[in-house]
């Protein structure tokens, strides 16, 4: 939604959950399911090898290394580790044990000298980094928690004037009293509630 607003000619959304791919397709993105296709190959081809502006919205909870602890990078299996068939992934260099898989894909297809943004959450244990590719491609990184106060007012105006419809990402609206159920649904979204993307409570 933000990329289109900023004037992107085309937007690619990379995921392997059909429901999320479907949602981003509804919002105007072209979708790549990394279980069937190689995102690096497709983006290089679609941008005539010029590369794209990339951001990692996944963070440490990507396939293969989720369920860890945000602060130290250790696997604690408290979350719901996805039961994933690694043999299907389209990219030949896919490494399910690499916690920086998304970043290593991203830096290969990022437009030279561009900013690569990482709003996805990582903890201090995630300290291995493809430094050489970043250096050779002259990339700069912006990451960390979003500076919400900087953009709040501008974004609010965009909503007020109807230029963006933020309600499109809300899949469920419930009463606040049902919050425990909402937590459980959001937590189990991988298994039972396949269509739970974002939940909202109202008083």
């Amino acid at each position: 939604m933000s990329s289109s607003l900023r004037g992107a000619a085309s937007v690619f959304s990379i995921d392997h959950w059909p429901i999320r791919l479907e949602k981003t397709r509804d919002l105007g993105a072209e979708t790549i399911n990394f279980d069937n296709d190689d995102p690096v190959d497709i983006i290089k081809r679609e941008t005539s090898r010029k590369g794209a502006i990339c951001f990692d919205a996944v963070g440490y909870e990507a396939v293969g290394h989720m369920a860890g602890n945000a602060s130290d990078g250790t696997a604690m299996n408290n979350g719901e580790k996805e039961n994933h068939d690694d043999s299907k992934v389209g990219n030949p260099a896919y490494d399910p044990g690499n916690p920086l898989q998304v970043i290593s894909w991203m830096c290969q297809v990022a437009k030279r000298n561009s900013y690569v943004s990482i709003p996805g959450v990582y903890g201090s244990g995630y300290d291995q980094f493809p430094l050489g590719v970043f250096f050779n491609r002259g990339l700069q990184i912006h990451m960390g928690q979003g500076p919400v106060k900087k953009y709040n007012e501008r974004l609010l105006h965009l909503i007020e004037t109807g230029r963006i419809d933020a309600t499109k990402i809300i899949s469920h609206t419930m009463n606040l009293i049902e919050a425990p159920k909402a937590y459980s649904m959001f937590d189990k979204k991988r298994r039972r509630y396949k269509n739970c993307i974002q939940t909202m409570s109202r008083m």
Binding site: S71, G79, V121, I170, D187, M200, S201, R202, M203
Partner: peptide, 20 residues
């Protein structure tokens, strides 16, 4: 006085008890 609130992916970190 809260009128509406969203449930964020980060709330699940708290929910799982993985945040020190």
């Amino acid at each position: 006085r809260i009128t509406s609130t969203a449930l964020c992916g980060s709330d699940l970190h708290l929910y799982h008890g993985t945040v020190p």
